[in-house]
């Protein structure tokens, strides 16, 4: 929990933002954790990370927690039938998770501030964010999978 809040501090303060694109590390971490372990673990991580992000950024309390929770569920439940040794799993999971994450944020933004045309939002905000989230997805997934296998004494087999 403390590590997730610290990561929230890092994401909102020191993480580089090339062309105003933010690499959403916590989203990737929550989705990857959900794909590797049980969805309820990802949901707990989503809560801690989301509240951390809300407090660090001054956003509406609960908004990022809700977005991360929905992203974790949407990414992990439909992909639960896939083998976790499949390298495509984190990429598909993070892409679905990011899309749902932004969908929830748009919904909340609309409720809070009024509705707007979502097409430019998707092109200018969501798509670059999704692309940026895909970059660390695979390395982070492999690290988490390796860590889990190490703890359980398993041998990871990669499937291409």
């Amino acid at each position: 929990m403390v590590a997730l809040v610290l990561l929230a501090l890092v994401q909102t303060s020191v993480l580089p933002r090339p062309y105003a694109i933010v690499p959403n590390l916590l989203l990737v971490l929550v989705v990857c954790q959900g794909l590797i372990s049980e969805p309820d673990v990802a949901v707990r991580w989503a809560l801690y990370s989301g509240i951390g992000l809300d407090l660090c950024s001054g956003a509406m309390l609960g908004s990022h927690a809700m977005a991360l929770l929905c992203a974790a569920l949407a990414a992990t439940l439909p992909l639960a039938w896939l083998n976790r040794n499949n390298w495509m799993l984190p990429l598909a999971g993070v892409a679905i998770g990011s899309l749902v994450y932004h969908g929830v944020l748009i919904l909340m933004l609309g409720i809070e501030q009024g509705w707007f045309d979502i097409q430019p939002y998707l092109l200018v905000v969501a798509l670059p964010d999704i692309a940026a989230a895909l970059i660390p997805a695979l390395p982070l997934y492999l690290i988490l999978r390796w860590d889990r296998a190490r703890r359980r004494g398993e041998l990871a087999i990669d499937i291409y």
Binding site: D40, M60, L61, G62, T76
Partner: peptide, 28 residues
């Protein structure tokens, strides 16, 4: 080989998800 993983949330897991969902709604 399309190994099916026991990843579906258990009864306890579903309860936890619902509780966290409600908690977030309360925070909002």
């Amino acid at each position: 080989r399309q190994i099916k993983l026991p990843n579906a949330p258990s009864y306890r897991g579903v309860t936890l998800i619902v509780v966290i969902f409600l908690l977030i709604i309360l925070l909002l």
